[in-house]
Amino acid sequence: MKDLIRVDELSIGFGLKNWVIPAVEGVSFSVKPGETLGIVGESGSGKSLSARAILGLVPPGGLITSGSISYQPESGDAVDITSLPKNGRAIRKLRGAEIAMIFQEPMASLSPVHTIGNQIVTTLRQHADLSAAAALSRAIELLDQVGMASPAIIAGQYAHQLSGGMRQRAMIAMALSCSPRLLVCDEPTTALDATTEAQVVELLMKLQQDFNMGMIFISHNIGLVSEIADRVMVMYLGQSIESGATEHVLKSPAHPYTRALLNALPAFAEAGAELATLQGAVPDLTARPTGCSFHPRCAEFAGPQCETERPAIQVVTNQHLARCHLHE
């Protein structure tokens, strides 16, 4: 099967032409239809930025310095999203219609002055030739599909009238309105309670199966990613440091950072036992360590090259990659 999206050696930086702070460096990944890629990492690892670049949503001040993002439409040739003019007609035709996104904070990403129904109708009519009435009945149908109890009433309500879980469902309904082929979820359940999170995750998994969507699921919650994703990519300071099938990466992690991250989780530790911790904190992007970015916090030094030489991506086992000198 062809890749739906293929990101190659993508680098994104912030700053001026001659003085750029790299925030994402040489990240590559791909997603096939019906597949879920989980991206995990701590704050500042560049996980959201890489995913947003797919929708052409690099924030102001940021620029793609190298690499390509190629999207394979249903018919025709692949499109390189990085080459499309920002907010031009071409990217707007893809965004929302073929590639949709769900954000972390539903309150901040829904309009407070338009009803839920109105917002879905706008999205629908932007991409499809529908009458206002037909779009509204489609919007109600979508709200029903995401499990809203009384969709017709919800369609007439404003975001502030809904609970957190319902807002996130409304966001999902909006994202799904044009039957996208790729869904990017940026921490979709972080703002939600545990039982509400369970409801939303269940819904996303069901909808993905129904529509055979490709999905990119960004989260710092490794436990959650292990349940949802087919493949996982772990990011640290803007680099992909490990990637592979979920069971490989999480059951037999190859990179010391992934190992440390898993050991630091209270969910995976013995009750009362001291949690393994990582030395120090994630360094600032402006003060990126030389050599391997992770070496000042690494407990499994491979040798002096860690301090001086940037490790290349190594193949650990089939399809399981790690960026570490240990695997040379």
């Binding site: 039982t195 369970a198 269940e202 436990g223």
Partner: peptide, 24 residues
């Protein structure tokens, strides 16, 4: 029971997640 099942952890990997209906 529902709250515990909603939390992914090493020992409930295989147990089905109990999804509550409705809202608080």
């Amino acid at each position: 029971q529902a709250l515990l099942s909603a939390v992914p952890s090493q020992d409930n990997q295989d147990k089905p997640r109990i999804v509550l209906t409705g809202e608080v």
